[in-house]
Design a protein around this nucleic acid. Sequence first.
DNA 1: CTAAACCTTGCAGCAGGAATAGAGTCAACA
DNA 2: TGTTGACTCTATTCCTGCTGCAAGGTTTAG
Lengths: 276, 276
Amino acid sequence: MEKLTIGKMARMNGVSEQTLRLYDKIKLLQPCEINPETGYRYYHIKQCAQLDMIQYMKALGMNLASIKECFENQNIDQFKEVLRLQKQNIHNQIDALRHAEKTIDRAIEGYQRYEVAPREEMPVFEYQKARRIFCYDTKINAYSYGMEYYEQVLRALKKNYVLHRFPMSYFCNVGSIIRHEHFMKRELIATEVFVFIDDEFESSDGVEVIPEGMYVCLYCDGFNREEEGLRKLMDYIFSHNYQVVGDCISEILVELPTSSNYDRKAFFKLQIMVKR
Amino acid sequence: MEKLTIGKMARMNGVSEQTLRLYDKIKLLQPCEINPETGYRYYHIKQCAQLDMIQYMKALGMNLASIKECFENQNIDQFKEVLRLQKQNIHNQIDALRHAEKTIDRAIEGYQRYEVAPREEMPVFEYQKARRIFCYDTKINAYSYGMEYYEQVLRALKKNYVLHRFPMSYFCNVGSIIRHEHFMKRELIATEVFVFIDDEFESSDGVEVIPEGMYVCLYCDGFNREEEGLRKLMDYIFSHNYQVVGDCISEILVELPTSSNYDRKAFFKLQIMVKR
DNA sequence: CTAAACCTTGCAGCAGGAATAGAGTCAACA
DNA sequence: TGTTGACTCTATTCCTGCTGCAAGGTTTAG
């Protein structure tokens, strides 16, 4: 049986010649014969078995170094351990991707709500499911000092947030809380900011639940409309004598990428639970 | 409010200084001020908004070029389109990872079966579910010419296999078929080889189903034991007058990474369905 | 004998940084 | 004013798993 040139070997196995040269160089799969004068590589057809194995292990997500190590050690138990690790690895990757997918869904949903939301800043009733948030009290009132303090507040949240190892993919869906007592006194005081997180995160310090219920909501477009919106919401609630149940939430539904000036462009949903 | 040095900006946002310098270089996020004498970068705190957005988009799986483009175009619809594409993208990645996961499970299962399988090459009864295979007839009898022809047969299968866009992760779980007629005549003739594939692949040419039922199975360790095993299986079937239903399958349960010599090291499961 | 196909080495490039060196700068303290 | 230590600058190299190109040598079919 004749020897295979690199091209035949490559075509037979659906890999490129460069790939075979690379495997030769890193000693992962070396041709059984090299003509010392011409440097031509010649493979034996039985070497296809190894190439199969390499491709298989690559498909499992292993990198070339690990594959090489596996070949060298020739240890079944080690290979099984590698498989176990690889499975865990893949599991984590899938989890991460699922997060990303969920986040995209959330973003798409946000945009859809943005598009259908009432533009006239009128309060509307909405029934909302319970949602989980990661909350952080910065002790600085985000409403009293303008955007720059708001950014500082957000930075404090973010620092704490990454400390808790939440994925960055949630960090576009933030909000702030005006606690019940302040809302009732019509004070615009919010020292706490939060990020919406998934239900799968167990409770720890900072994790709170915004309860399910009927909310009065008001949508407003842009940071400069937020305070006005909050005042309108208060007016509406108090003039109709609705019984306020919990805290007032100001949620950023959508944030748009912007670079022309440094200001954030966001679409808010203000909301507070009421009893009928 | 004072300007932020690169270090402060980095620490505030949980990124490295190098990353910020890279973003500056590719004009993704440039400091609002650079001291022309010292070259020091100074950021405004409001620029954190952009960095948030970058990190968010990165978490969605976008690359820096797309992120930059999004910032430049400032187009909501384009961003939504990007989100849609990204969702599809993530979906595909998850699918691929699920395949890999399944394959690893299959490999682990194979090793477990390998460990508990009877060592003495005695036929055993096993009830087996239906399994789907991608089959290819090479017209060459794999048993008549030894390993080198077997490799050629496998190459032909592989070529066809990648042509059909099946993932390489299945390619460790191959087998060959001795058709009913040959088996009944005790002929070791197998021109067809196959790969086990998942049920989710729809039927097309080459895809067959190995039916559910009771099988007589015989495990053997190594290529050199395969023919002997087949003969033992035939002896057993015919001496007990079992009624053979379909074709005889020789399946590679486990293949081990090997590099010392070029020979494959595999563990076989020979199987044929019988009627009680 | 020629042309086509094939092979060789070596280098450049992708993404998204990490890590390093060597030099310059800044703020605080004595 | 000097010194220290923390900080920052640029520039370069490295990582993975290849792909692609250029310049040149080899093999093979007709």
